[in-house]
Design a protein around this nucleic acid. Structure first.
Lengths: 190, 190
DNA sequence: TACAATTTTCATATCATCCTGAAATGGATA
DNA sequence: TATCCATTTCAGGATGATATGAAAATTGTA
């Protein structure tokens, strides 16, 4: 009912409308980026809204603004909190929870990169090492002497080398968002 | 019918079986990586099979080995060829097409990165620039003097800065796979 | 040209994912 | 403890993506 009352103390309604249109475009943009960041579209839209408004919004605000159901907002907000992209804040005298996005883009990027690394890349490296193991002379015995086995061992090893090096780079750059920012600025200019 | 006759001239069948198990693991691995690389799972599996075997396989070989339908294999193979990860090869005296994966992991990585950049990142940058435009003083007029508008302009600008710098890095590193390899090795060790 | 082998296309079916809404839970107040 | 408000959970439904298989198109061969 009383979903939209919080902010916007004084702007004329036509101005508000203009700003809301831009918000919409921005949320759509986030939506399109979701696959790239490896998060679900709705999670991305909610985060986009929180980032661009810079405000602490309640579940009802978000439901109304993005036209999605309560349960959906609830689940995606908890994921966002879990990822560290959004934090819960409270307003005194109000029982509801409000949610606010991080404001530092470098920090957000670092968080997402680390989550993906932990959830996707690390398990892949583990599996790949096991594959390499399975193709090693110790496991294959005499079979390892065939051309076929040797070639496969080499291919797995090369892939492992690439991913390991990437992983080690990522570890260094994403340890803190300051590290990332410094590195990128350095590399991008020169 | 005569799907699997081509390679493997002399290995005992138990050895073949061992190797096929490893192939399976590798294909599964590729499957799991598909989201990370931004390609569909089946496309990834086919490519995984072609990469690990190092052989030129026909559609029938792939259908049989991965248990997927002809149409599916056909469509995904043409995508792989389009991306440049796989090439069509011919065997003399055989009307069928055979398909072979690139063998250089750095080259493959560079291809995928460039495709994603072109398909996903570049459009995002375009849209983001339009968002920034919509929030600029020129477009907003007097409204741009409000705190709200100023804050949003700043947020969009910061995001744009981050993505632009990333984009410029990517352009340099992914121009050729040699560039990437050299850069990663340099950064990873020191 | 007619034929046969192979590949491509695409309407339909299948599947996985995501969303909804209502019931269950939690937790503050009196 | 009883009540009220907010949040979470989850079974079932909606949606979109992917796979199938048979018909159409393509390409090489006689």
């Amino acid at each position: 009912m009383k979903a939209t009352k919080a902010k916007a103390p004084s702007l004329p309604s036509s101005a508000l409308q203009r700003l809301e249109e831009v918000e919409d475009h921005f949320v759509d943009l986030w939506d399109n980026m979701s696959a790239l960041w490896g998060i679900s579209p709705t999670m991305a839209r909610i985060h986009g809204l929180l980032y661009i408004t810079g405000a602490a919004l309640s579940m009802d605000d978000i439901m109304a603004r993005l036209a999605i159901s309560r349960g959906n907002v609830s689940m995606n907000l908890s994921k966002l909190v879990e990822w560290g992209l959004v934090r819960r804040v409270h307003k005194r005298g109000d029982r509801r929870d409000y949610y606010e996005s991080l404001s530092d883009v470098w920090e957000m990027f670092t968080l997402v990169a680390n989550q993906r690394k932990r959830r996707e890349i690390d398990p892949i490296l583990t599996t790949l090492r096991r594959c390499k193991e399975e193709l090693s002379p110790e496991t294959l015995g005499g079979l390892a002497d065939t051309d076929v086995a040797r070639q496969r061992y080499r291919r797995v090893t090369e892939l492992l080398t690439l991913l390991s090096q990437m992983e080690s780079l990522a570890r260094r750059f994403f340890e803190s968002h300051r590290g990332l920012r410094a590195a990128v600025e350095l590399l991008a200019q020169e």
